[in-house]
Design a protein around this nucleic acid. Structure first.
Lengths: 200, 200
DNA sequence: TCAAAAACATACTAATTAGTATGTTTTTAC
DNA sequence: GTAAAAACATACTAATTAGTATGTTTTTGA
C-alpha cells in the first residue's frame, strides 16, 4: 500500500472527498450542500474552500479521486486478467452487484447516479464520467476479442455490441434496483449468464 | 379523442403540468424551482399553489398524468397487440429510442431520470414509478408467454428474466446515451436483436 | 342577479444556498 | 528561532428557495 506520511492538509482533503462522496451518493450532488459537508466532516468552510475553489471542482475531484479508483478496481481490473470472457464478465458483474460495502441497492451506482443528474448540466463531469465508462467498455471489448483468439467466443460476435449490452444492463439494473430492491439483481444475473452463453 | 370543454382552471393546471414536466425533464426535479415554473408558465404562485398543495404533489401529478400516459402508449400498448414477441419487443424499443419529439438523447428518459434522482428520497414518487415499470415488465412477460403458446419462443425461456434484461437494457442505454449520444442506441439495438433471436 | 365558492394575484417570510472577506493558527524553509 | 507561506477559522453577504397570508377577480348555481 502507498498512502503513508500524509500531511495534515492531505488528511483534511481526503476527509472532505470521502465524506462528501458518501453524502452525494445518498442524496445526489445538487441536494448535498456545502453546509451538509462541513457539518459531517467537521471541516470549516474556510478549509474546504482552501482545498477546492468551488463545489464543482470538489465534485470533479470526487469523480477522479474517489469514484474512478474504486470502480476501476471492481469493474475494469478483473477483466484485464481474464482467461474466459463469459465467465469473467459474469463474475465481475456478480462481484459489483454483491459488493455491499461500497454500493447500496437503495442508492444505486454512484457513477450512474451522477451521469443521470449531472451529465446534461456539467460538461466537465460528463467528460470525467465518460472516461470511466469508455475504459470499462474497452476492457470488455478487449476481453471478448481475447476470447475470440482462444476460440472460446464465436468470431461473428461483435465485441462492441456485447460491451454495450453489458454496460447498459449494469446501469439499468442499478436503476431498477432502487425501485424493487436486490431481487432484480439475481434475475438479471441469471439472464446475463444465459446471454453470455450464446456468444461462445 | 376526449379532452373537450376544458375549463379555465383545467387549462391552467395542464399548462403547469406540461411546462413543469419539460423543465424537470431537462434539469431534474430538485433543480427546477417553483419560480422557474411560474416564470415559464406565466402562471402566478397563487394559482400554482391553488392547484397543488406543494411541490411534491405537483411532481406526483406529473408522473401520473403526464409521464404515465405518454410512456404507456409508447412502451406498453404496442406489446399488448403483439403477435411475434421478438419482433414486437424490438420494434417497441426502436420506437422509443427514435421518438425524438418526446425524448431527447441528451436528457435521457424522464422516468429513469426521476427514479435515479428521487426514488431514495421520496417514497410516493418511488411507488408511482414502480407501478409504471411493473406494468411494463408484465407486458413483456405476457408477450413472451404468448410467444411460447404459439411455439415462437422456446418453452425453457424464463419470461421474467427476459423482461428484466430488456428493462435494464432500456434504462441503461438511456443513461449511457447522455454521455456518448445517439450512436450507442444503434449498437444497443443491434445486440438486442441478436439476443432476442436466441430466445426463439 | 347575486351570493358563495372557485380561481387566481401580489407581497411577503424564514430558511437555505454557494461563496467571500478577513481574520488566526500551523507548518515549512532557512 | 523566525519570517513567509500554507492551512484553517469565523462571520458575513446576496441570491434563491418553498411556502404563506391576504387580498382580488372570475365562475357557478339558485
Amino acid at each position: 500500500m502507498a498512502s503513508q506520511n500524509l500531511s495534515r492538509a492531505d488528511i483534511t482533503r481526503l476527509n472532505i472527498l470521502n465524506k462528501a462522496f458518501a453524502l452525494i451518493y445518498r442524496s445526489g450532488y445538487q441536494a448535498t450542500s456545502i453546509d451538509d459537508i462541513i457539518a459531517t466532516t467537521q471541516v470549516t468552510k474556510g478549509a474546504l474552500y482552501y482545498h477546492f475553489k468551488n463545489k464543482d471542482e470538489m465534485g470533479l475531484a470526487i469523480i477522479e479521486e474517489v469514484m474512478y479508483p474504486a470502480m476501476h478496481s471492481t469493474m475494469i481490473k478483473p477483466l484485464t486478467e481474464a482467461t474466459h470472457p463469459q465467465k469473467e464478465i459474469y463474475k465481475m458483474m456478480k462481484g459489483i452487484l454483491e459488493n455491499e460495502s461500497f454500493f447500496d441497492v437503495r442508492y444505486g451506482c454512484p457513477a450512474v447516479n451522477l451521469i443521470e443528474e449531472m451529465a446534461p448540466l456539467n460538461s466537465a463531469f460528463a467528460k470525467a464520467l465518460k472516461k470511466l465508462f469508455t475504459e470499462w467498455k474497452n476492457a470488455i471489448i478487449h476481453c471478448v476479442e481475447e476470447g475470440k483468439k482462444k476460440k472460446i467466443v464465436n468470431t461473428d460476435v461483435n465485441s462492441e455490441q456485447v460491451a454495450i449490452l453489458v454496460l447498459s444492463g449494469y446501469s439499468g439494473i442499478r436503476n431498477l434496483g432502487k425501485l424493487v430492491g436486490k431481487s432484480c439483481y439475481t434475475i438479471y444475473l441469471k439472464e446475463l449468464k444465459n446471454y453470455l452463453n450464446t456468444v461462445g
